[in-house]
Design a binder for these strands. Sequence first.
RNA 1: GUCCUCGUAGCUCAGGGGAUAGAGCGCAGCGCUGCGGACGCUGAGGUCACAGGUUCGAAUCCUGUCGAGGACGCCA
Length: 575
Amino acid sequence: MILVRDHIAQLIAEAIHIAQKKGELPSFELPEVPVTRARDETFGDYASPICMTLARVARMAPLAIAQRVLAHLPSAPYIGKVEAAHPGFINITLAPQWLSQQVEVILAEGERFGQVDLGKGRSVQVEYISANPTGPLTVGSGRNGVLGDALANVLAAAGWRVQREYYVNDTGTQVELFAASLYARYAQALGRDEPLPEGGYPGSYLVEMGHQLAREYGDRFLTMERSQAITALREEGLKRMLASIQADAAALGIHFDNWKSERSLYEDGTYSLVFNRLSAGGWLVYRDGAVWFTETPHRSSGEVQGEQPTQAGAKDGTDKDNVVVRSDGRPTYFASDIAYVWDKLVTRGFDRAIYVWGADHQGHVPRMKAVTRALGLDPDRITIILYQLVTLKRGGELVRMGKRTGEIITLREVIEEIGADATRFMLLTRAADSQMELDLTLAVQQSSENPVYYVQYGHARIASIFRYAQERGFSPEGGDVRLLTHPAELALIRQMVRLPETVALCAETLSPHHLTHYAQELATAFHAFYKDCRVVSEDAGHAAIGRARMKLVQAAKIVLANTLRLIGVSAPESM
RNA sequence: GUCCUCGUAGCUCAGGGGAUAGAGCGCAGCGCUGCGGACGCUGAGGUCACAGGUUCGAAUCCUGUCGAGGACGCCA
């Protein structure tokens, strides 16, 4: 389906060229033509300020340009009225006949309505949450998950082949600390006086897991050698943590296509491959006993490398170096990230890879880009979406969080307190880069008036209309959508046909939060229509319009359902 | 100290260089003797943190100040 927005831009560009050819406008290089939704409905549906931009280069008044452009604007079935407006806008109103016809289009497309083809079959991997499997998911992980999941939905709807992945940090310092902590809790459960290791995980969930393991296995792990026991408990603990994480994610409607093991990157040779590659390229330096990745490579051949206008290059730039292998020989997680990006872009060959990271990882973005370039790959193929951390409050009191500090408000608790749909909608309504404060007492109080219910209510209301109609033997069969001319009907259709553009917007800007705002506007248009327009009635003379309105309402239900599906919340038949 | 993100209505937040800056909640009112009132309508409420700059035009872009959060070579 073509986007009306883009098509209008094309038509305006054509009109300008025609006017130029006829000498009505001077010749100049045409910049991209911006087309936006009109700010106010009295201006129509779409507007372009292009003529104001052109005023200088054309040396004409914007309004005069607009008038000459409009004189040559090619016609299109969706265009109703075009106007040049002060101080130089081109305003376009959609044709009512075209709008009403869209009801049939939507009915025909069904679940596919809203899809656009921006991806053109290219593949993209969206990797999200990827929290350390050393504790339960936090609210921050929830925000991460909801962002990533909705983004994956949107990209799929925008014509990309999408894979959803969870990266499992199943190796490294934190995992060892986790295992040692679990060992301590397990031993304690069996009455041993075993202290929690330095920097270990104090959370109560490990106390519980320790007891569970003690119940299930008795003292089996105490009779073996300590290091062997810790290894065994690590595997058992990881398995259980991952199962619990998977369940928490599922409670928010999040399901992954693949769980990628960090450890596997070492076992399958990816790590040594990228290490050798970087080494050969001169990107690795040895200093203080460690191996560093440097963004200013030392080439033994002395060949001049490409333009590297790093201002800071005057200094030797070592402050930008990052440790890949520690002085004790263990690789850092940055080493894993290097192998992982190779795995994504080369081994598995995704056209794009999208990471969703908390803002506390922002410092790592430049070096991920740098190392991707160093591997000989186009850094634009990876995109890292940063979201601001959620600060939690309870009754105005700040709640500190973190697996390592012990006190945690888990995602699970929040879902249980305010509901999965409300949680998901709430986390998705804000742009990723907005800092958000979540007061649980307030959220619980307000969850019943969460906008998500307003949208879902629209869907349920339509379902109810159909139940009512069916009892009385009414059906949309044979309805003539040309009868849909009431302002409230057209206003509803206007909102419905915005879905493809909203999907495009979300996919282009990788910001799915527009969906929730759109959903509310769509629901508002429906509720207003419902107020003004009777759908099912036995009144004389109502039969024809009744059938047409049933078609409209059926289409509205499809659009609401498609939108809710993209957001990732349910579309209930009743509530 | 350096760097990144943010600062918009009482609260939580939208606003891809353009027209009179919007929504939800809260607040003050109004509306149902037919399809779900988890609804509809109206109103009050703003120095878009502050100061400069670019531009025909800035909430939006640039610089600085203040404020919030975050990051700064062997944690992730």
